[in-house]
Design a protein around this nucleic acid. Structure first.
Lengths: 250, 250
DNA sequence: CGAGGGTTTGAAGTGCATCAAATAGTGTGG
DNA sequence: CCACACTATTTGATGCACTTCAAACCCTCG
């Protein structure tokens, strides 16, 4: 539960991080510099709650490393995971359009380095900088598409298919025939990301294994031949196979 | 399958329609006038397909009356309904940020009057008009929030609860204790909107009836007392009761 | 009145959740 | 390097929610 805040002597490090975020691409130097001046850098351990749904939002966040889970939860504690994000992704910025309140909760899923920035800077800059607005529109439209797909997947795909889809998306940048994939975070979390129970995940993965010939060793998955996996998974989806989301910038 | 296109002698009618769309609120007259000049007005019968997923997008659409279903479908014809829209709503405009391709299909669900506008005008105007960009950001952020909730509802609520939620949202502008609600479109469509089969809808509605004391006569629903309905429904949701989406402008 | 679509009901099956318990894996201190 | 504690993962047994397939019913409209 302890988070370390560090005072950075070298603000240019942060400027660099900001440059790598899609939202700020082509951003003018002055914007980046101004944002960086209000930036805060923190290391957070797994489990740290960054904010909860409906909190007033002073700042928004950028992930430098690690994983962050965005979710919504009911009074009885049941939660629906909205997304799980890693490096280069930004979150919390939607509060700008939600009366200044966050519209989901955020928790560190794997120890993370996170940069936070004052919402005000972003807001003020959006008012004057149409290029930034357009960037943000683009970013948001991509998120929107991702969510549309999410709705589709959760209503049309079975549990094993959703796992297959998840694996294929991880494998998306490889061209090899024989592919080795490492699950990015623990299986329980993957399960929640896919909207199923851990037990279901376990059973569904082994069903997928039998149906498509993939190999599973702990958190490592080997795929000799993509075809049966694609066949089995992508049949129940409206997109055709190389259905990449845009990759985060390098 | 026949759609009537009408040449409008009076373009100011369309200008009026555009003014009522959230995206164009506070829009300058010149923008509205320009848009209206490229506008096309059409009446479409139920069932008419306006465009399908991945079609190149020349135009985007505004609903003047009737209902339009947005959906994604797999090769075998199974579909996932993304949303069902009515008057004052806009759709198809996301293609701007999706390489000019629509990212879902659109079908007229109840006979509709629809205005379409050239995507180019919008794109060009966004480049120069930050106020418009900001409007669009706001619109999109609201859609995003709506989708987040959708994901939550579909994974956390049971079928009867989703119906209860749907009913409560229809009832949202009434203050009376005794409320009468008319389903906006046929039950099969409501079912698909809520991600369930028509049979499930039917059974779930009668379960909801028993649990909460609502009265159902065909497509009309009477609620004597909201409390049991709210209690039954909103327990499985992260938002608290008067959880209105923003209403469409008058 | 009869046709056809929307809606309901019935019977049976499937997928996922739940609860409980066993097993594997990881990090700790000795 | 081992034993222990704790967590992640798997496995088993059972139940519930929703789907599927089939048929009846109902309502509207020609």
């Amino acid at each position: 539960m302890i988070s370390a805040t560090e005072r950075l002597d070298d603000i240019s490090v942060i400027e660099n991080d900001l440059l790598s975020v899609a939202l700020f691409k082509n951003g003018c130097q002055t914007l980046i510099k101004q944002l960086a001046s209000g930036a805060q850098y923190q290391k957070h351990p797994k489990g740290k709650i960054l904010f909860v749904n409906q909190d007033p939002a002073e700042r928004f966040y950028i992930i430098k490393s690690g994983w962050v889970k965005l979710f919504r939860e009911t009074v009885d504690g049941t939660q629906a995971v909205v997304d799980i994000l890693d490096r280069g992704h930004i979150f919390g910025e939607h509060a700008l359009f939600n009366n200044g309140l966050y519209s989901y909760s955020a928790e560190v899923a794997e120890a993370a380095e996170i940069i936070s920035l004052p919402m005000q800077y972003l807001q003020k800059e959006l008012q004057q900088n149409n290029a930034l607005s357009l960037n943000m529109l683009e970013t948001m439209a991509q998120q929107h598409l991702k969510l549309d797909k999410e709705v589709e997947h959760r209503s049309l795909q079975t549990a094993p298919q959703r796992i297959g889809c998840f694996i294929l998306r991880l494998a998306r940048d490889t061209q090899d025939d024989k592919i080795t994939i490492q699950l990015p975070y623990d299986k329980t979390l993957v399960a929640s990301r896919l909207g199923m129970q851990p037990e279901t995940f376990s059973r569904a993965l082994s069903k997928l294994k039998n149906q498509t010939g993939i190999r599973v060793k702990g958190s490592i998955i080997e795929v000799e031949n993509l075809s049966p996996l694609i066949e089995y998974t992508c049949n129940a989806c409206s997109s055709n196979y190389p259905c990449k989301d845009l990759p985060p910038e390098e």
